[in-house]
């Protein structure tokens, strides 16, 4: 089995800074600036598009500079670990000095996954949070995931990427309740939820909220995805808090747009004297409140934007936790 010594990696990181400093000084005379606000552990499949992931990480670094430890899981085979160390640098506009963040890439077979925490923990930057972003739905389903999750202050996954039944994915995530969690299937709903909340800032409309008797959440395809379950659960929770007793319908539909289908296509709240509809149409969101319509710009949320939002919340998120618990309830009404 290939083995890794964390001390060796730390030495490599130190050497990296010396060489970066020399290079930066030679090129601009200004050296480089090291930036770090967290340790970000990213678990991805070895077959994933490495350049796309690299771009996402590079985009994240200016706002969330981190020591990034990228675990590339190479699948079956004898237990093996390999590593490489490099830096991610960028030159701020109008400045002479580069800003750099460290990146460590570890390749591990499935059989070596259990060894990963013992390598990662010594590499974590002291006094700063450790965030685990698991991009691999396969690893999320493995028992080794729990060992990796236990070292993190916050765990980010994407339940919508888990193949099969969305309800099972939410139930699996629910097992981790008590830990700080982020689910990108929930993060994708932020702008939708914000628009809906915005509608209810109006005093007249918020007083009509208790009249809502029907809620419809429309998703693409035949089976509800986790985002639609979250949306249904969240809306129902908010309306119940406002004194309404609505019925929830999760309805499958066909996405006719040319772009990739969003996970939620339409949300409708209706009842006596109130009609609120949020509908995605190409890269716009059309909000209709009674007879007034508003159109705003709403591009599909990129993976970068989703992770960026989650990295900005390193504390408990009570609204999400409540929505997760209710979404499992929506998925399994008898529970």
């Amino acid at each position: 089995m290939g083995t890794l010594a964390p001390e060796t990696i730390l030495h490599q990181l130190a050497d990296l800074w010396v060489s970066q400093g020399k290079e930066g000084h030679a090129e601009s005379g200004a050296g480089v600036l090291r930036a770090c606000s967290m340790t970000l552990v990213v678990v991805s499949e070895a077959g994933d598009d490495a350049s796309a992931l690299g771009e996402t990480l590079a985009a994240l670094m200016p706002e969330h500079p981190a020591r990034t430890i990228l675990i590339r899981v190479s699948g079956a085979g004898p237990a093996a670990l390999e590593e490489r160390v490099y830096a991610q640098c960028w030159m701020p506009f109008g400045q002479r000095r580069q800003i750099c963040c460290e990146q460590v890439e570890i390749t591990a077979t499935d059989a070596a996954l259990l060894e990963v925490p013992s390598v990662v923990l010594p590499l974590a930057v002291a006094d700063l949070p450790l965030i685990l972003w698991c991009r691999s739905a396969r690893v999320f389903a493995m028992p080794e995931f729990d060992a990796m999750a236990s070292m993190a202050h916050k765990v980010i996954i994407d339940s919508a990427a888990v193949p099969g039944d969305a309800r099972a994915a939410l139930a699996r995530l629910r097992q981790a309740a008590g830990r700080m969690l982020g689910d990108l299937a929930w993060t994708r709903l932020t702008r939708w939820r914000e628009m809906l909340s915005h509608v209810f800032e109006n005093r007249e409309i918020v007083s009509d909220a208790r009249n809502v008797s029907r809620v419809t959440v429309e998703y693409p395809g035949a089976a509800p995805n986790s985002s639609s379950l979250y949306m249904g659960a969240w809306v129902m929770g908010c309306l119940t808090a406002a004194g309404a007793e609505p019925q929830l319908t999760l309805a499958g539909g066909e996405w006719t747009g040319s772009e990739p289908a969003p996970l939620v296509m339409r949300v409708v709240l209706e009842g006596e004297g109130i009609f609120v509809e949020l509908m995605r149409w190409t890269d716009r969101m059309v909000t209709t409140v009674n007879n007034l319509a508003q159109c705003t710009h709403l591009p599909l949320v990129t993976e970068y934007a989703q992770v960026r939002e989650e990295l900005g919340i390193v504390r408990r998120d009570p609204v999400f936790e409540k929505a997760l618990a209710s979404a499992v309830g929506v998925a399994y009404p008898s529970q």
């Binding site: 939820r193 809906l196 005093r203 918020v206 908010c238 309306l239 808090a241 919340i313 998120d317 609204v319």
Partner: peptide, 10 residues
């Protein structure tokens, strides 16, 4: 009446 849809964290 308070807006029940608020999520100040996000």
């Amino acid at each position: 009446i308070e807006n029940p849809f608020q999520d100040p964290l996000r």
